[in-house]
Design a protein around this nucleic acid. Structure first.
Length: 798
DNA sequence: GCAAGCCCAGATAGT
DNA sequence: CTGGGCTTGC
């Protein structure tokens, strides 16, 4: 007996030593998080503390060794000899130790028992990639990794029947939501001044995030306004259902509902997802909290990672309490704090700490680093937004020259998308390749939305909102009166507009237009046939022909028309790439991708271009050199937040996120006057910048004395934009390696400078082969990023 | 039913 | 400054 006990003890000891060595690239806290597989676990991960590394290593460890580290089991064949073998293994390399451990592990977890919820699809993709690298191609087979929305949608698609929706249901984006809500408000005869669609949608969204049903909202309503909003909510929901559509929030809510009320499905999913990991937990809302706790109910193996200081999605319903009280709501939760920062210089870290310490109600933690002090933070005051943009562009040129930096080293992060314009202009003038993420997204352009609306109606003819968008686009002589009549009939008979239109001659109100309406439905049904047999890119091509859309845009004046043709070309390129990336991609999959995939998911950190994005988008990313323009009160913090201390704290967390993106250099700029939304105003330095101690700055902020001048002192000074001297010519990336193809069209490689008929000059950023064709991603000097097919692009080398 | 033109509100962040 | 909604005159 005694003997056995001591054997167990020696085995356990050496086993843990070996695991510590095998995962020696992690610090002890990180390892603790990695090896803690069972039970609830909260990992408080400060900025740059290796959170992603922990997540990936933890899943890799789970799949490979189960719970071996903390397990009290010992392998059956363990004996003196085996133990001395293990002792000798200590001197081996981590990789070799891992193989040795394979021989003594006492458990293993199957990938299909693991659910990993990440904040972006990109993070999920990278996680899978790294797991495949570590465990081989089928080592992660069956593991679910994705965003809350994509994972829930996957569940909803699988169990569509039990949700009350029907096959092919569609997702309404913010725009569609507004349209639908507007019609609800109008039909209710409510005062449109008092109830804007936006406010009603916000109300609905807030309810959904808290899992409040329309009826509950009505009961809770304390006064007239809330009662009204609740009734809009009810009607809105009803119409969504008729259109076989869900909004973004529904994706989560309907999943919670499904799991909550269907015992069989709940059992199945709880049994399946025995191990659940949630990244960016500080940005989950109540509905998401309920979802994960429900899924984890049976096994209790719920791991959440996050940083309360980086909670920046309050406006979307994120509830910081989820992370602040995880250890209280989950009994027996273990808490691991990661406080060593591996990303930034101590100057940058001190700067971030100086800002965030002004917030109250945080989890107590102190971030530290072994990285050197590095350079001081640069703070610069400029006259106006053009000077600011020129300053940033100039700095980038300078650092490229002096420090031999790559363009991908630089990021410009701002509070609001509206600030990107001036910056783009400055980069374009100097021929600096750049890419803008977010903002007016590609999929929000009119012609793109139109084509997608066709695809939606083809996929789901009940989709009334999309149907109304395209029914007379291009013009088919179907006017508002007819559309209204169809809509009314549909509501009256509880049918979709499409169904009414199919039988138009049976209704006197629309019988005069019956022929036109039926032409339309026939066209859609015809396209449905094509959709069932052909790929999406082919389908789009047919849509353009059959609908007359192509003819319509080709008839437009040249510049406008060509631009739209090009944009649609880009949509087709995206469809080609998408079909290629999936084995069996359906139209439904494509539409889902288009609505759920964020700009940031396509961000390639190695592409040779400066990147411009909002601070929100930059969450989780890091860059050697970061510029923070427009650090001014009213912009950052937003003027809309000043009246609420909670919102101010969120702004400050956002500032913290902004600063902690930087690894080596941080440039903060602000201006005296700024042209924004069509009017020029005077701005003062951001209060957050004032919170940075002078000794961290390369230039004293007191030196600027800006507050002492009356605003007018700088008035009326025009700052003409800098001469457009340096034009692209001097600028090139690497050597050009042109390849000729058999087809005769010259092929280009990344880095080549090219000329395009519509967009002018640009730089090829990436080349993705696609069958006999290829997709170019090109940064145009004056037209931004475009994707185009090599065989059709008509590019000239310059 | 349609196109042109006027008017006015709205412009934080994003799945 | 922009885009969408509305009016107006055909």
């Amino acid at each position: 007996m005694l003997d056995n006990d001591s054997l167990t003890k020696r085995y356990t000891e050496i086993k843990r030593k070996l695991f510590d060595k095998a995962y020696g690239h992690l610090n002890s806290k990180q390892r603790e998080a990695v090896f803690t597989v069972n039970g609830p676990l909260l990992v408080l991960a400060g900025a740059g503390s290796g959170k992603t590394t922990v997540l990936v290593n933890r899943i890799e460890y789970m799949l490979r060794y189960g719970n071996t580290y903390f397990s009290e089991k010992i392998p059956l064949d363990i004996d003196e000899e085996k133990i001395s073998e293990l002792e000798k293994a200590q001197s081996l390399s981590p990789q070799e130790i891992k193989s040795v451990l394979d021989g003594v592990k006492t458990s293993v977890i199957k990938p299909y028992n693991v659910l990993s919820l990440t904040f972006t699809n990109k993070a999920a993709g990278e996680m899978k990639e790294r797991l495949v690298k570590a465990l081989g191609s089928d080592g992660a087979e069956g593991l679910w990794a994705g965003t809350f929305h994509s994972v829930c949608l996957r569940i909803l698609r699988r169990f569509t029947e039990q949700t009350g929706y029907s096959e092919g249901f569609t997702i309404y984006d913010t725009d569609d939501q507004k349209k639908l809500m507007l019609s609800v408000i109008k039909d209710a005869g409510a005062d449109e001044k008092m109830f804007t669609p936006r406010a009603a949608i916000d109300f609905v969204s807030a309810c959904k995030n808290e899992l409040i049903s329309p009826d509950e909202a009505k009961q809770k309503a304390a006064e007239f306004r809330e009662e009204k909003l609740a009734s809009f909510y009810k009607e809105y929901q009803k119409r969504l259902k008729t259109a076989n559509a869900m909004d973004f929030d529904d994706i989560i809510v309907r999943t919670v509902e499904l799991i909550g009320k269907n015992e069989e499905i709940r059992d199945y999913l709880q049994g399946k997802f025995r191990y659940i990991c949630v990244d960016e937990y500080q940005d989950t809302n109540h509905a998401q909290f309920v979802l994960v706790t429900l899924l984890a109910e049976k096994y209790g193996n719920l791991m959440v990672v996050g940083d309360d200081d980086q909670s920046i999605y309050g406006f979307r319903g994120a509830d910081i309490k989820n992370i602040l009280s995880f250890d209280k709501s989950m009994e027996g939760a273990k808490v691991v704090k990661l406080e060593q920062n591996y990303r930034s210089t101590s100057s940058i870290l001190d700067c971030a700490n100086a800002i965030i310490k002004n917030n109250t109600g945080r989890h107590d933690k102190k971030l530290w680093t072994e990285n050197g002090e590095g350079e001081k933070i640069s703070l610069k005051l400029l006259g106006n937004q053009s000077e600011e943009a020129d300053y940033i562009a100039g700095k980038i040129m300078e650092l490229r020259e002096k420090e031999n930096r790559k363009l991908s080293d630089f990021a410009v992060l701002y509070r609001i998308n509206a600030l990107s314009n001036t910056l783009e202009g400055a980069f374009a003038r100097r021929g600096i390749p750049y890419r803008v993420l977010g903002g007016q997204r590609f999929y929000e352009r009119k012609e793109i939305k139109d084509i997608l609306a066709y695809l939606c109606v083809i996929n789901n003819p009940q989709d009334n909102i999309r149907l109304m968008r395209i029914i007379n686009e291009p013009k088919r002589k179907i006017g508002d009166a007819t559309v209204d009549a169809v809509k009314t009939l549909a509501e009256h008979y509880g049918k979709s507009m499409f169904e009414i239109m199919e039988n138009a001659e049976q209704y006197t109100a629309i019988s005069k237009s019956a022929a036109k309406l039926k032409d339309f439905t026939r066209m859609i049904l015809g396209l449905r046939e094509i959709a069932s047999g052909d790929t999406v890119d082919v389908l789009i091509d047919k849509v353009l022909d059959f609908s007359g859309y192509r003819a319509m845009i080709e008839a437009l004046d040249r510049e406008d028309g060509r631009n739209r043709v090009e944009n649609i070309g880009e949509l087709i390129s995206n469809a080609v790439l998408f079909m290629q990336s999936r084995e069996e991609a359906t139209l439904s999959d494509f539409l889902e991708e288009v609505t759920l995939v964020a700009d940031i998911d396509n961000y390639d950190p190695d592409a040779e271009a400066v990147v411009l994005m909002t601070v929100h988008s930059a969450k989780g990313l890091e860059f050697p050199v970061v510029f923070l323009p427009a650090m001014e009160d009213d912009i950052f913090p937003s003027g809309k937040s000043v009246y609420s201390s909670e919102e101010m704290e969120e702004e400050r967390r956002l500032a913290y996120v902004a600063v902690t993106r930087a690894k080596e250099k941080l440039f903060i700029t602000h201006v005296r006057e700024r042209l924004l939304y069509g009017k020029t105003s005077y701005y003062r330095m951001s209060q957050f910048v004032k919170e940075i101690p002078d000794e961290l700055l390369s230039e004293s902020k007191n030196g600027e004395q800006q507050r002492k001048f009356p605003a007018g002192a700088f008035g009326a000074v025009r700052h003409p934009s800098k001469p457009k001297a340096e034009i692209s010519g001097e600028f090139s990336i690497g050597a050009s390696l042109a390849q000729k193809t058999v087809s005769g069209a010259e092929r280009f490689s990344a880095g080549d400078r090219v000329q395009h008929g519509v967009f002018g000059s640009g730089t090829v950023l990436t080349v993705t082969p696609a069958g006999s064709d290829a997709v170019y991603e090109i940064a145009f000097d004056n037209a931004g990023m475009k994707k185009m097919m090599a065989n059709y692009a008509k590019l000239k080398r310059i």
